[in-house]
Every structure is written in structure tokens, then in C-alpha cells.
């Protein structure tokens, strides 16, 4: 049964380079949403942009998911500032 997901939210985060955007994608993608059935989150990378798209049935769950994502995004960006730039490959 497909859960109704009336609410949507999208976010585009610019990074200094496409590699940085891919690193952020790699760092933020692996952990599944705690409530997969009620909130879905898709991450994609285009050039140096990390796009995130949420769909959820309830505003409360959507907000929790976005908040948590922004916390982790901030952490990843800070880590890049502290330990970057990426080594050439």
C-alpha cells in the first residue's frame, strides 16, 4: 500500500566543487530514514549541487527529518573545512 505523501520539500546545496558535492552525497546517503514508510528522502548530485527531495505525509515527521539532515549536513561541511580539501585523485 502506497502511503500518501502530500508534503514535499526540496533543497539544493552548492559545494566548492563537484567532488565535494559527491563526498557530501556519499557521507549523507547511507543511513536510512528511521521511518521509511512515512518519510522518503532522495539525494542526487548534479555538478557541484547536492539536491535533496523529501516527501512525507505529516508535517511533524517532515520537519524532524529536515532538521536532522541539516545538522548532519553542517557537520559534513565543517569536516570538509577542517580536513579538506579532497586529495587529488
Amino acid at each position: 500500500m502506497e502511503v500518501q505523501r502530500a508534503l514535499e520539500f526540496t533543497l539544493s546545496v552548492p559545494f566548492p566543487s563537484p567532488l565535494n558535492a559527491r563526498i557530501a552525497h556519499g557521507a549523507l546517503s547511507p543511513d536510512p530514514e528511521p521511518r521509511k514508510a512515512e518519510v522518503s528522502k532522495e539525494l542526487t548530485v548534479v555538478e557541484n549541487l547536492l539536491h535533496v527531495r523529501w516527501r512525507a505525509a505529516e508535517a511533524r515527521l517532515l520537519r524532524v527529518s529536515i532538521n536532522s539532515f541539516l545538522d548532519h549536513l553542517g557537520l559534513v561541511v565543517e569536516t570538509m573545512e577542517q580536513f579538506g580539501p579532497p586529495v587529488p585523485r
Binding site: I23, P30, V76, M80, P86
Partner: peptide, 17 residues
């Protein structure tokens, strides 16, 4: 766990390790 995983994944990719 979520915090350390995000940082570890970022550092691993930054340093290509």
C-alpha cells in the same frame, strides 16, 4: 553513531582512504 559515521565517511572520501 550518526555523527561519527558522517565524519568518518567524509574524511575517508576527502583523503581517498
Amino acid at each position: 553513531l550518526a555523527v561519527v559515521a558522517a565524519v568518518a565517511r567524509t574524511v575517508a572520501q576527502l583523503w581517498d582512504k
